[in-house]
Every structure is written in structure tokens, then in C-alpha cells.
């Protein structure tokens, strides 16, 4: 069963009053949403806060969702608004510590390799930081969340052509900053 179909089933159960279905729905969507927020804000704590706020809003407003087959679109739209709110309230992409960049504390033995990984991550992140918000959001949705152009257009309430043109512009800009970077060779041939 697809994730979307399973979500529909869970929403029906939630509407019928089954509390455990809420946990199931969160298990299904919490990670993607928090990861999306993490890529977008660059801050682990902010991402977790955005994730929680998103689901609070989802459960509060779930009865207002008319077409439950479009739940994931609605969910991402809420998360996206939460991310934008966060960026409005805070200076975007504040400098991060290493744990935030990698997302989890270091466990690798090879310190040198780990250092290189961290350097590469920093570099990718920096390149994404340079993009305008409207391009970064689409790159994150497409490259990391695997959403279709049609879905992104629905979430952001813009045309599919605009999504594609921002994606194109974003990738073009990233190409300039990523491929010209001195770490490029290490990345490819390590």
C-alpha cells in the first residue's frame, strides 16, 4: 500500500476517534517533514520545533481537510509555512556546530575521513545557503524529498512551469558553486 493510501486509511481512523492512528500517521510523515525543515532551515532544533508545530496544526485542523487523498500536499504546505515563519522570525542559516551539520554526533573511527565528510557537507550546505529561498525550497523538495513537480506546484500554489524554471535556475547556480569547488575531485574519486 502506498504511503498516501495508508495515510488516507489512518485519517479515517483518526476521524472515527482512534488515537493510536495519530501515532501511526506521525511515524509515516514525521521524519520526512523534519528532514525537510532541517534542510530548509539548516538547524536541527528548529527543524524539530517546526515538525512538532506542523503536526500540532495538522491534528487541530484535520477535520477541515476536505480531500484526504491530498493529505501529503496539505501537510507539506503547513510545514512550508512553518519554515517560512521560522525564517521570518530568525536570521536564516545561522552558523552551525558540527553536530547540526551532520545531523548526529560523530561515531566514525576514521577521523580524517570524517573531517573530509564534514568539509564536504559544509560546502554543500553553503552552496544551498546562497540560493534564494524560493529556489532552495524546490531543490530540497525535489532532490531530498523526491516530490513530483506537480506536487511541488500544488504545495507552493504556483505553476508547474515556475517550479521547473526555479529548479533549473537553482541547479545551474549550484553547479557553479559546487563543481568549481576544490573538493570536487575528492568527492568524485575518493
Amino acid at each position: 500500500m502506498s504511503k498516501e493510501a495508508l495515510s488516507e486509511q489512518l485519517i479515517r481512523q483518526i476521524r472515527a476517534g482512534k488515537r493510536s492512528a495519530m501515532d501511526e500517521l506521525m511515524k509515516l510523515w514525521y521524519q520526512p517533514i523534519v528532514r525537510y525543515a532541517w534542510r530548509f532551515t539548516g538547524d536541527r532544533h528548529a527543524a524539530e520545533e517546526i515538525g512538532q508545530n506542523t503536526f500540532l496544526k495538522v491534528f487541530r485542523k484535520l477535520n477541515q481537510l476536505k480531500d484526504i487523498s491530498r493529505f501529503h500536499i496539505w501537510l507539506y504546505r503547513i510545514a512550508d509555512n512553518q519554515c517560512k515563519d521560522y525564517l521570518r522570525r530568525n536570521k536564516k542559516y545561522e552558523s552551525l556546530d558540527q553536530e547540526q551539520i551532520n545531523g548526529q554526533p560523530s561515531t566514525r573511527r576514521n577521523a580524517q575521513h570524517e573531517l573530509e565528510q564534514q568539509e564536504q557537507t559544509k560546502w554543500i550546505k553553503k552552496a544551498l545557503q546562497k540560493l534564494p529561498d524560493d529556489q532552495r525550497i524546490i531543490i530540497v523538495m525535489k532532490e531530498y524529498q523526491g516530490l513530483k513537480f506537480r506536487e511541488i506546484a500544488d504545495i507552493l500554489e504556483i505553476s508547474e512551469n515556475t517550479v521547473k524554471s526555479r529548479m533549473y535556475a537553482g541547479l545551474k547556480a549550484l553547479k557553479k558553486s559546487l563543481i568549481r569547488h576544490p573538493h570536487k575531485k575528492e568527492l568524485y574519486y575518493e
Partner: peptide, 16 residues
């Protein structure tokens, strides 16, 4: 190539 590089930014696990 750009997409390949982007994929090297690994995602963390978040506790649900």
C-alpha cells in the same frame, strides 16, 4: 554531477 554532490549531504535520524 551537481545532483550527485547534493546527495552526499546525509540525512540525520530524528526521533519521532
Amino acid at each position: 554531477d551537481t545532483q550527485e554532490i547534493l546527495q552526499q549531504w546525509q540525512e540525520p535520524e530524528f526521533e519521532v
